[in-house]
Amino acid sequence: MATPPQPAAAAAPPTRGRRDRRGELRRAELLEAAIHLIGEHGLDAVTHRAVAAAAGVPAASTSYYFRSKDELIDEALRTLATREIVRLRERRTALGAAGAVDLEATTAALSAWIEEQITPEGRVAMLAQYQLQLEAARRPEAREILAAWKEGTDDLAETAMRSLGARDVTTAGILLVCAIDGLRLRLMASGHAPLAGAELRAVVRALLAGLVLA
């Protein structure tokens, strides 16, 4: 069976500001500060001054590297997408290398991934991802960033369902992505007690078992 093509991250636009290592480090600091602000307080919290303060750098730094709030938000989305695509590729490679993976192994891997994302640190990043994805959906120029992210997510889901012997790999993969998205939102945003450990694994196991027969 041929290996599916790996998704490519959307090409980054030309950057503003210093192009040396120091400049790249400062840009990275500002983007991490923006991501944290978005995850903690939402997109309205992002201003040049607030991002610079969160990064602990001079107030003029953000406008030196980013022309506008929209550019800063797009670059924050690109940073998150690139990071997540790398992680998706690693997980996809691990599943593909394992060949035929049993239900318990896939259940454990997906459950551990979900639990990583609902820790206090992971929760901030996940909320930032959802905020940025919604913003990108409103602005066509940002959608190419989401396209590469979607390809990586779909590829991982299809690899998982193929390894389990799903009847319809494409359909099962789409349903798996949608179900995990819904589960993560439930765990982060609802008043329900968070699922964890054996309880979370039982839910994921039932989901996978059902999708194999879809």
Rank of each mutant, 00 (worst) to 15 (best):
H192W: 13
C178K: 11
G182P: 00
L208R: 00
M188H: 12
R186C: 01
A189C: 15
V177K: 15
R201V: 08
L176K: 01
H192P: 04
G182L: 01
R167W: 10
L208I: 00
A209P: 02
A198S: 15
A196D: 13
I180N: 03
G197S: 09
L213W: 09
M188T: 11
A206V: 03
V203S: 07
S190A: 11
A189L: 15
L208Q: 03
L175H: 04
A209R: 08
A206K: 08
A172P: 01
R201H: 11
A209D: 14
G173T: 02
L208E: 04
M188F: 08
A172F: 02
R184E: 15
L211K: 07
L208D: 07
E199G: 05
V177H: 14
A214L: 11
A166W: 06
V203T: 12
A198Q: 15
A172T: 02
V212H: 06
L164W: 05
L185F: 12
A179T: 08
V177M: 12
I174W: 09
R184A: 14
L187A: 11
T171C: 09
G197Q: 08
A189T: 13
V169D: 10
L187Q: 15
G210F: 03
V204Y: 03
D181E: 08
G165Y: 06
T171S: 12
L195Y: 05
L183V: 01
H192V: 05
L195C: 06
G182E: 00
V204C: 02
